[in-house]
C-alpha cells in the first residue's frame, strides 16, 4: 500500500529534523498539520509515528519509509540539476512533485543513472539505497565519477563533491568547474584529461570527486 503524498512529506520532515538536526520530537505546527488530519491518522495507524500533546516523534517502524522519502526527494533534485539542467528555483518546486512519483524500481534506476550520487545539490547527504551497495556502477550512468569512466569519454563537469575544502579549492583553481567540457585521455597510472586547451593529470582520489555528465552514456 502506498502512503499519501502528505504523509510522505511529514515522514521526510521528521527524518531530517531527527536524524540530521538532532531534534527528538517535532511540533505539529512546524509540520503544518493537525491532530486529526488524515495524513497523521494514516501514519498513526501504520505505527510509524507517536503523537504526544502537540508534537510527533518518528518510530523505528517508520524509519525506513522516511529515509526512503528523503532519498527520493534528494535524488529528484539531482535529476533536475544534473540531467534536466533546471535552474535552482525551478528545481525546488519540481523536486517536491517528482519525489512522490518515484517508485522503488524507478528510484534505483535513477540512482544508477545519476552515478549513485552521495549528496543533493544542497550538499546534504543522500541516504544510500540497495542499488548503491553493490558494484552497480557498471550500469549506464548519465553522471559518473571521472574515476569510473574509461579513456576517451567526453562530457561536461556536472558538479564537484568533496568534504575537504582545500581539495575543492585545488580542483577549482585548475579550472575544473561545473559546465566545463572535459575529455578523459587515460586512466592509468594517473587520470589525464583535457579541459579546454589544457591537459591535467590527477590521481584516483581527486578524479573520484569530479562528477561528469557524459555526452553519450555507456559509450
Amino acid at each position: 500500500m502506498r502512503l499519501s503524498d502528505k504523509a510522505e512529506e511529514i515522514l521526510e520532515h521528521l527524518w531530517i529534523m531527527t536524524q540530521e538536526m538532532g531534534e527528538k520530537a517535532v511540533g505539529l505546527k512546524e509540520l503544518k498539520t493537525g491532530k486529526d488530519a488524515p495524513e497523521v491518522q494514516e501514519l498513526l495507524s501504520l505505527n510509524y509515528i507517536d503523537l504526544s500533546a502537540d508534537s510527533v516523534t518518528l518510530r523505528e517502524e517508520g524509519m525506513e519509509e522516511a529515509e526512503s522519502a528523503v532519498r527520493r526527494h534528494r535524488l529528484a533534485e539531482r535529476l533536475m540539476v544534473d540531467v534536466l539542467e533546471l535552474d535552482r528555483s525551478l528545481m525546488e518546486e519540481n523536486a517536491c512533485l517528482f519525489e512522490h512519483l518515484l517508485r522503488r524500481e524507478v528510484e534505483e534506476s535513477i540512482c544508477t543513472l545519476l552515478g549513485h550520487p552521495k549528496s543533493c545539490p544542497h550538499n546534504r547527504p543522500i541516504p544510500s539505497g540497495r542499488c548503491c551497495l553493490g558494484s552497480a556502477t557498471s550500469a549506464r550512468s548519465i553522471v559518473s565519477r571521472l574515476s569510473d569512466l574509461e579513456g576517451g569519454a567526453k562530457g561536461k563537469v556536472a558538479y564537484l563533491h568533496t568534504r575537504d575544502n582545500k581539495k575543492l579549492q585545488k580542483l577549482m583553481t585548475m579550472g575544473i568547474l561545473p559546465g566545463v567540457s572535459i575529455e578523459l585521455i587515460q586512466t592509468f597510472p594517473s587520470y589525464v584529461f583535457r579541459l579546454g586547451h589544457t591537459q591535467i593529470a590527477v590521481d584516483r582520489e581527486m578524479a573520484g570527486d569530479i562528477f561528469v555528465r557524459c555526452g553519450n552514456p555507456g559509450a
Binding site: K170, M174, I200, M206
Partner: peptide, 11 residues
C-alpha cells in the same frame, strides 16, 4: 595526510 596529486601537463 595522504598527499594528493594534481598537475597541469603543459604542451
Amino acid at each position: 595526510e595522504q598527499p594528493l596529486f594534481y598537475m597541469e601537463v603543459p604542451p
